[in-house]
């Protein structure tokens, strides 16, 4: 019998290796796999390349891993905001020392590069960034008189995603705006690990409502947390 549910977040991340490329879902705290990130901090894998929309702070998000000096490179659209005061010092110290590399990607291009990675599309042309500094490092080609940039697909060794509910087959449903990057990231990694609020019986999610089919998901871990706004 297929059973993708694992007992703990520690077990879920135990085979993440040094030098892995890891996609981390979420937009701010919405749809962020917080428990998996903390488990990865405790696990201690280093030299990681992280693909995530934003870095977050020292209390949540990828910032936890940066503060713990586990990250070599971040591929993101929004590296560090003014609100992340506590992360600033260590972020800039590592960045200036060359220990932390940042690849800045427009958010829509980031989403599409991940989608392409999961869908077996090697690269695509997009108008985003044409006529800006971003065009200098990329192949430029015109379609119908409009300049476009060639962007390459992104794939990862692991994806850490968050969903509302899962079943033992790995099917996922989301709540409100949690879908964000989770849907594409689940498709673009060798091993996709889903943190969910609740695991339910197979057959009860509602087949028409399943948003991430279980084919994309390797492990599911239930983390019961109180959903409370933390300002």
């Amino acid at each position: 019998m297929i059973k993708k549910v694992v007992a703990s977040v520690q077990e879920a991340v135990q085979d993440i290796f040094d030098g892995s490329t890891i996609m981390v879902g979420g937009f701010g705290g919405s749809g962020l796999p917080e428990a998996l990130i903390c488990a990865l901090r405790d696990h201690g894998a280093r030299n990681l390349t992280i693909v995530a929309n934003n870095v977050g702070g020292v209390q949540y998000g990828v910032g936890i891993l940066i503060a713990n000096r586990q990250v070599r490179k971040v591929i993101c659209s929004f590296p560090i905001g003014r609100r992340q005061a506590k992360l600033q010092d260590t972020f800039w110290e590592q960045y200036r020392a060359g220990a932390l590399e940042v690849e800045l990607v427009p958010q829509g291009t980031l989403a599409e590069r991940i989608r392409a990675g999961g869908a077996g599309i090697a690269a695509f042309y997009t108008p985003t960034g044409a006529g800006t500094g971003a065009a200098q490092a990329r192949e430029v080609r015109s379609f119908g008189g409009r300049e476009c940039l060639l962007e390459l697909a992104l794939k990862a060794d692991f994806a850490l995603v968050k969903a509302h509910k899962a079943d033992r087959m790995g099917n996922l449903v989301y709540r409100k705006a949690m879908r964000n990057f989770n849907i594409m990231m689940a498709t673009a990694a060798n091993v996709t690990i889903a943190e969910v609020y609740e695991v339910v019986e197979a057959g009860t999610l509602g087949a028409e409502l399943i948003t991430t089919p279980g084919i994309y998901v390797d492990r599911v871990v239930e983390v019961k947390v109180e959903r409370r706004w933390q300002g």
Binding site: S77, P106, A130
Partner: peptide, 14 residues
């Protein structure tokens, strides 16, 4: 040293 692009480039182009 770094900017924050977010969705601005995609929105401006699209």
């Amino acid at each position: 040293e770094l900017g924050n692009i977010g969705g601005a480039m995609d929105l401006a182009a699209g």
